[in-house]
Design a protein around this nucleic acid. Sequence first.
DNA 1: AGTAGGCTCGAACACTGTGCGAGTGGCTTT
DNA 2: AAAGCCACTCGCACAGTGTTCGAGCCTACT
Lengths: 250, 250
Amino acid sequence: MRSTEGFTGSVWLRPPRARTGQPSLSREQIVRAAMELLDAEGPAGLSMRRLGTRLGAGATSLYWHVANKDELLELAVDEVLGEVYVPEPGDTHWRVGASISANGMRSALLRHPWVIGLLGLHPTLGPNAMRLGERLVALFTAAGFTGMPLSHATATLNAHAIGSATSEAAVKSALKRTGKTWEEVAEDVEPYLERLAPDNPNYEKWRKETGPLRKDPEQVLEETYAFGLERLLDGLEIWLTRNDGKPPPA
Amino acid sequence: MRSTEGFTGSVWLRPPRARTGQPSLSREQIVRAAMELLDAEGPAGLSMRRLGTRLGAGATSLYWHVANKDELLELAVDEVLGEVYVPEPGDTHWRVGASISANGMRSALLRHPWVIGLLGLHPTLGPNAMRLGERLVALFTAAGFTGMPLSHATATLNAHAIGSATSEAAVKSALKRTGKTWEEVAEDVEPYLERLAPDNPNYEKWRKETGPLRKDPEQVLEETYAFGLERLLDGLEIWLTRNDGKPPPA
DNA sequence: AGTAGGCTCGAACACTGTGCGAGTGGCTTT
DNA sequence: AAAGCCACTCGCACAGTGTTCGAGCCTACT
């Protein structure tokens, strides 16, 4: 039973295994251990054999609880989505609620950067993904959205978090991998930029005017994310006041 | 010479190999063939051995032109970014230009979905990525942005394309993998949703009201992307008129 | 007491990325 | 013309991968 056989074979749609006896392994345990390995060493650090030994079990024992590695990763992704908190509609203004959700999504992805590379592989419809959807629908319904625009709005909010986190993860991983400080990296890249300068006049002009990269990238990256989020929420808000949440008559 | 050694060891920063004689392989050729394999069969379809035989060469010959597989993938990613067209500032209103850029990014990513999983690994600073940055700076400068907000705006635009493409790629890949039609998949998922219904009252209410999923997902996905893009551009535009492009005094 | 079946696991298969060292052919230098 | 350099190709080998298969154990029910 391979999870790639189709939606019907997807982890989520398949009934769970009947359980009796005192098994020494459990799916939750396996997923948790996998996440620890992934967090600590990235995607390359997770192999079924290493995961097995880490759990004091044979590598192939895992295959009783999990169809294959792909499916294990799907489970792990959903687990990460479970870390995202979405406020109740009544608790805050919807803008604040949306910010909190997006912030939560972003930081969950940055806490577990290996998820980012997996998001494009399968649509995530695990229980935690569903719960996240449910609560976003609640939030945006209360805000006044309905129908397709509601769905668009929630999807766009997530897209912003995912897209931002992707870029952030890229530079963070480079910094971590090289072990260099931001200043050292900037020094390394400088000559390359100088060489390409003739081809990039506008970029160079901007770079000169904005001054040398001073702030540490973590801060800049967060600022970029926050700026984009505000713009997006502004855009959603004016759409809301203009359309009152209903799809245009078109 | 491993590319993971740091920025200094990155493909882009390292001087190209001196070339003489009549080599039968070239870096461009290798990258192109790799992209064909990736497009046709996804990330799993690319192995150094298969790539070698496809080029009529030994697998290890590739290592003369490319430090390792990681670096080959970096080159391929930049190549994909080369497919994105960004209009000249004078040619259109900046909103149109920004839309065209984002559309181009989105479709490039959807044409080569394997890129999506790679974007979070290394910051892409290949020549094509640089050119893309250059032209976005030109576009947004002409629109009236300056300083950090300019950089934030371009980054956010890309983030929207990337985040949207990620979700789109996820469902497209599932459809392709299963070979099922959208209706069949919906039927498969239905009982699962019913089972979870008690936990997702708001989502269920929305689902009932919006009606059964009728349109094909490609269209819905594109609509979602377009809706989000409009909202984002609205948000950028009102920021621009309010702040005149300059960072707040703060 | 006997049997079913949930669960573990070792051996094996086909495959992966990559280091190493030997080999080959054309260019430059003597 | 001879010699040598060196860009380039490639076969072998190593350590590791995901996954299948079949044998076995141990518990729980008949």
